[in-house]
Amino acid sequence: MCGRFTFQPSDNSEINKIYQLAVDNGYDPKIGEVFPTDQTAIVKSGQNQVQVVTMKWGFPGFKSGQNIINARSESIMQKPMFADSFLNRRCVYPTTGFFEWSKDKIKHRFNYGTDSETLYIAGCYNIFNGEARSVLLTTAPNESMIKIHDRMPLILQKNQIKSWIYDQNFAIDFLKSEMPQLISTPLTN
């Protein structure tokens, strides 16, 4: 389960461009460490091309104040809460890495390397009481993740973003994709 990620425009030129697109479109995405319910930058379909907006991270849960922040890729099409969103409103979370906590409560940062590289996470969204809200998709962990956590985000390459957003067959097939190997950096703070 991915419960935190980073969106750090000052550390990454690609993320800085995405941030600027959001700001130019009138949005104010959370920067730094992003928590559930924050307004986060999201890439979604636009009229002629993808666009960058912000959305609250998390669908409303079944109890008051509850937020559902992740959806399992293996069962997303069978879950009434997520199926229509996945089939019709896919999006992408641009990040500079994500965090997981080990069983011994050590916080680990994950990315392709030790730098703040751009890491894209697959998601979907829906509208609740007039507000757009999103969830990110998780999948079974690969070797780089399994010692820390039993889930990992569904990670897209930059050249797969448009296909994920616009091509339903690609998106359905991608749910079963192998995830890239990542580097874990334990954090002491």
Score class of each variant (00 low, 15 high):
140 A>I: 13
137 L>P: 05
94 P>D: 03
123 G>V: 01
107 K>F: 09
108 H>W: 08
70 N>F: 03
172 I>S: 12
93 Y>K: 11
80 P>R: 06
92 V>W: 11
172 I>A: 09
98 F>D: 10
113 G>I: 10
163 S>L: 13
132 A>I: 07
139 T>L: 04
99 F>A: 11
185 T>N: 03
160 Q>C: 08
112 Y>K: 10
90 R>M: 10
107 K>Y: 02
150 D>W: 07
126 N>V: 03
153 P>E: 01
145 M>P: 00
88 N>D: 05
178 E>R: 08
167 D>Y: 08
124 C>R: 07
123 G>I: 08
114 T>L: 15
157 Q>Y: 12
124 C>T: 10
174 F>S: 00
86 F>L: 07
110 F>C: 10
92 V>L: 11
157 Q>L: 15
109 R>G: 04
135 V>E: 06
149 H>R: 04
108 H>S: 12
151 R>T: 00
139 T>Q: 09
100 E>F: 01
80 P>A: 03
71 A>P: 10
183 I>T: 14
181 Q>V: 14
128 F>T: 05
178 E>N: 11
82 F>H: 06
141 P>L: 09
170 F>P: 00
115 D>H: 14
134 S>R: 04
110 F>V: 11
180 P>C: 01
154 L>T: 04
181 Q>S: 14
160 Q>Y: 04
145 M>H: 01
182 L>M: 05
92 V>E: 06
95 T>H: 03
147 K>I: 08
167 D>L: 09
104 D>Y: 06
136 L>M: 14
162 K>L: 13
94 P>V: 00
157 Q>T: 11
150 D>T: 05
126 N>S: 04
87 L>E: 08
120 Y>K: 11
106 I>D: 15
173 D>Y: 03
170 F>R: 00
142 N>H: 06
81 M>G: 11
139 T>R: 07
133 R>D: 08
140 A>D: 13
98 F>E: 02
100 E>H: 04
120 Y>P: 14
76 I>M: 08
112 Y>Q: 12
185 T>H: 06
